[in-house]
Design a binder for these strands. Structure first.
Length: 727
DNA sequence: CATGGCTGAGTCTAGACAGCATGTC
DNA sequence: CTAGACTCAGCCATG
């Protein structure tokens, strides 16, 4: 179908044509003829890269131009919110305004009311709903990207609840990977269903077993016995490869081992550019391992990498500079990074229940990464069989149907938070209304029986009453309490809130970082960090050493809580090191964690620390304790000792610059205002830009006329790390 | 007796959303 | 029940 035949606004057609698109892909055409343009709900289950985004753009923009209102575009990842935001920005020429909102920026927030297309993570939108922003009622369309995540254990419930809320209030466009029961999903959403496996780039799938490559069409190719020959072969053909493995360790190992084989296939300019790229990376244990592979044209990609490293790798791969990426599932969903050949080395993964087969849905998503639309005529996805029977793998993953989606609403911890929100933020007044609402969910649609769910809900309601999140009046009417409402708005698990609250009396008597960090780490919202077997004794010793600082009793070795307690101590110790300015690299070494892990821990601790303070405020807070907590929060956010807090409040001054300034004798803001520019320039990490920013902040003219920067090349800058300070 | 290599037992394992008020090196 | 990479202690052979 040609663009001009579309029955949408002329302006929409014009912009699409300007992008060079004249013809729609068949599934796109089918989707747009389904009635979505007339306002019907639609479930669109087609492969990645087959044009889901364009369909949603057309539907969104056309609707907004004709009816006004707002469209919400839900994504599962912050990185995706960013990506979609940039794509949708193009529609601003039509006068529509586009915004993105994730946990990283903004909140309630009334300013979003000015925008027409809002990209948000599911959790963020859920939070916005809870805050009850006035513009929510203008939402006319909800696009849910990657809606199959409704079946994800820990995050599915959120998406399900959002859709349950918005059903009947807005048009729904659900974009899904191919799943086993798309019909069921469509029925629930009262939607049309368009399913297709058409792709713009042909996908050829196969299974590799000991030198033989069995293609799905029955043809067999011969290779050397090791699967890495498939990678080398792709690079020799001038293509790229993506290798999926199941652990970080494997990703790193395979990257280094492939690098030794890829290296000689690089051109001189490529080698030079890679060398440059390698040099530009900050030095730390993880990055050093990465560098070893990177300079030879291979990279590994997993959640232990820092944010900037990830983007550097992604960009360099898209550019064609990096030839191979070995990755954990970070890359299987999420950002779009296709390659000609995809190798799936592992089809099993370690989970809480031991070794499990990776779901068909996930493997097919990995395979879907094969083939770059503009560069390749086709893509190749190859599963490696080691001990397993290649026929079985072929049957299961190549010809097999992906799993059915199951509602995860009954997941205890997610359900607890959702029930609380229904009562405190969505004015569900009594148990009957609660059940009525639950009958709108996918869970009910799927099982048409809520007895189990009702039973669980009842238990949760009792828990919420018992712990004063809510109350019951004489007519069995729910009465939200402030504690409950705030917990729900802070978006923390009620269990976390309860833990905090229970600890307040002890905390008040003995506020100290270690106790508070252990408390935060013991929360279900913190996520886990595993202490190694060999470390356990050390952390236990530490716990006993710090016993009087803790707000809990140290469990016995045989207690079932022992392992998690040790993990909490480890986490607390890391946070303690962080606010005592232990250099990052030493933290990575001492705790055997990667930069991405530290980043994650800090992000979580920051959020939970804020929540702890907010909840403390509700219970007759002591002013000095509150001040102490706020201080600690700031130290946690910036990773500094108390003495740097004043400096760290300044613009562009973080832990490193603040420490450098302090050691150079600038200990207060006053010191800096009075300093000569040349003196400040002599401090490590301080340049003209930073100084200009500082004085702008102070609202003071730059002192002295030495703006020319005669001292700028001062060779002996003072180093600013704590180590140097202590030396 | 010191060194080095082999072997078997033991250990460890993916990812990433949320608040709020503004800017890391 | 199903994996794979790695570490480490213990053992043996070698010089």
């Amino acid at each position: 179908m040609r663009i001009e035949e579309l029955s949408v606004d002329e302006r929409v057609k014009r912009i699409i044509r300007e992008r060079g698109i004249e013809e729609l892909y068949p599934p796109q055409a089918k989707a747009l003829k389904s009635g979505v343009l007339e306002g019907k709900n639609l479930v669109l289950a087609i492969p990645t890269a087959s044009g889901k985004t364009l369909v949603s753009e057309i539907v969104m923009v056309n609707k907004l131009l004709h009816e006004g209102g707002k469209a919400i575009y839900l994504v599962p990842l912050k990185a995706l919110a960013e990506e979609k935001y940039r794509e949708f920005k193009a529609w601003e020429v039509l006068g529509l305004r586009v915004a993105a909102t994730t946990g990283d920026y903004d909140s309630t927030d009334e300013w979003l009311g000015k925008y027409d297309i809002i990209v948000a993570t599911a959790e963020k939108f859920d939070s916005l709903l809870r805050h009850g922003s006035s513009w929510i009622r203008d939402v006319k369309l909800v696009v849910a990207d990657e809606v199959h995540l409704i079946g994800s254990y820990d995050r599915g419930a959120t998406l399900e609840m959002i859709l349950s809320h918005m059903l009947d209030k807005a048009q729904i466009l659900a974009l899904s990977a191919t799943v086993g029961n798309a019909e069921e999903l469509a029925e629930w959403l009262n939607a049309e269903l368009v399913v297709s496996d058409w792709r713009p780039v042909e996908l050829r799938k196969g299974v590799f077993s000991h030198g033989q490559l069995f293609w799905e069409d029955g043809k067999i190719d011969r290779y050397p016995s090791s699967w890495d020959s498939l990678v080398v072969d792709a690079i020799k053909k001038g293509k790229q490869a993506l290798v999926f493995v199941n652990t970080r360790r494997s990703a790193e190992k395979e990257a280094v081992s492939l690098a030794s084989k890829i290296y000689r296939l690089l051109t001189k300019p490529e080698q030079r550019k890679l060398e440059e790229l390698t040099e530009s990376l900050e030095s730390n244990p993880t990055n050093n391992r990465l560098r070893e592979a990177l300079k030879k044209g291979v990279a590994f990609h997993h959640a232990g990498l820092g944010r900037s490293e990830r983007t550097v790798i992604e960009d360099a791969f898209r550019e064609g500079l990096i030839k191979v990426i070995t990755a954990t599932p970070t890359l299987s969903a999420g950002i779009n990074l296709p390659a000609f050949r995809v190798i799936i080395r592992d089809t099993k993964r370690y989970s809480n229940f031991g070794w499990v087969d990776i779901p068909v849905l996930e493997v097919q998503q990995m395979m879907g990464r094969a083939g770059r639309p503009k560069y390749d005529k086709r893509g190749e996805a190859i599963i490696v069989a080691k001990t397993e029977d290649p026929k079985k793998l072929m049957e299961r993953y190549v010809f097999g149907k992906p799993e059915k989606l199951f509602s995860m609403l009954s997941n205890e911890s997610a359900f607890r938070g959702q029930i609380l929100a229904l009562i405190t933020n969505f004015s569900i007044g009594n148990f009957r209304e609660l059940i009525e609402f639950l009958e709108r969910t996918f869970y009910f649609h799927q099982r048409s029986d809520t007895s189990q769910l009702e039973w669980k809900a009842k238990e949760i309601v009792y828990f919420l009453i018992e712990n004063e999140f809510i109350d019951l009046d004489l007519n069995d009417h729910f009465m939200p309490l402030l504690f409950g409402r705030r917990t729900s708005q802070l978006y923390i698990d009620p269990l976390t809130a309860k833990k905090f609250r229970d600890a307040f009396p002890k905390l008040e008597k003995n506020p100290n970082p270690f106790g508070i960090f252990q408390l935060i780490a013991s929360t279900p919202d913190m996520g886990t960090l595993n202490a190694r077997r060999k470390e356990m004794e050390d952390y236990l010793d530490l716990a006993y050493e710090m016993e009087e600082k803790l707000y809990v009793n140290i469990p016995y070795w045989e207690d079932y809580t022992f392992q998690s307690f040790i993990n909490e101590v480890k986490t607390a110790k890391i946070l303690l090191d962080w606010i005592n300015e232990v250099p990052e690299t030493r933290i990575y070494d001492a705790y055997n964690i990667d930069p991405g892990d530290l980043y994650r821990i800090l992000e979580l601790a920051d959020w939970l620390m804020y929540s702890l303070i907010e909840l403390y405020k509700l219970f007759e807070p002591k002013e000095e304790v509150l001040a102490y907590l706020r201080n600690l929060h700031l130290r946690l956010r910036h990773g500094v000792r108390e003495e740097l807090l004043e400096l760290v409040r300044l613009p562009n001054i973080g832990r490193k610059r603040a420490r450098a300034l302090y050691n150079a004798g600038f200990r207060t803001q006053e010191d800096i205002i009075r300093a000569k520019v040349s003196e400040l320039l002599a401090v490590e990490g301080i340049g003209m830009k930073v100084i200009e920013g500082l004085f702008r902040y102070f609202g003071v003219e730059l002192p002295g006329a030495s703006k020319k920067g005669a001292d700028e090349r001062n060779p002996k800058k003072r180093r600013g790390t704590l180590d140097d300070f202590l030396r």
